[in-house]
Amino acid sequence: MKTRSALTILLLLILNCAVCSQQSKFRMGLLGGASVDKLLYSFDDESGFLDASFSGKFRPAFSIGIFAEYDHTKSLGLKLQANYTTKGGILEKTVKYDSRLRYIQFSLLPQYNIHISEIEYDDIFYLNAGGYTAFMVHGVELISYYNDETERIITSNIKGTDYGLMFGLGIIARRFILDASFSHGLTNILADPVHSDLLNIKNMSFFISIGIGGGL
């Protein structure tokens, strides 16, 4: 009896997958837009005297990218996105520090699609969440005191790879895309083995993008 039940369930699953594959679909597109980024700082020491968490100010930047999405079912898909983006932030002490870290970022985002049109299959509202891996291309810090400004290349002082989480939502209507997302780094981006226990710096970004794309 148990074997028969198991076989029935297995058969149902296979049938379900066959139906799924009929609904599977690829979607691709281009996205570009603005981001606001800041850095999150935390200090930690054994005595507790240095412990502090603070964040810098947001600084505007831009982002451009492409994505490909595979719909496993009508509602569930998997999106792979590649972006060229600038992260960093502003910190003002006696001197103003404007950090610009340029990354190529790859995100893998399971996506939930809600179809908003019965006529156009590709018109959807979507929610996604997943992870990203970003590879740093270039890092620069602009240090200014009043109008005196100094540029410092910091590529070698920052870790080459950043990992983090990403959450987004958006709408695709008649191939026009409006997308908003949030990313939070999980890696301490400071490449200083001596002080990595004392100081922890993470990336955080909000993106708003527009684009064009749709089903293939």
Binding site: D45, A52, G88, G89, I90, E141
Partner: peptide, 28 residues
Amino acid sequence: EMLGAGYGSGSFSFTQKNPGYKGTWQAK
């Protein structure tokens, strides 16, 4: 200084005052 954050570490010694006055420091 990196990304606007200031941090550091090192050592100190002031044994002229007291033989035990030595050790390390951290700063932010």
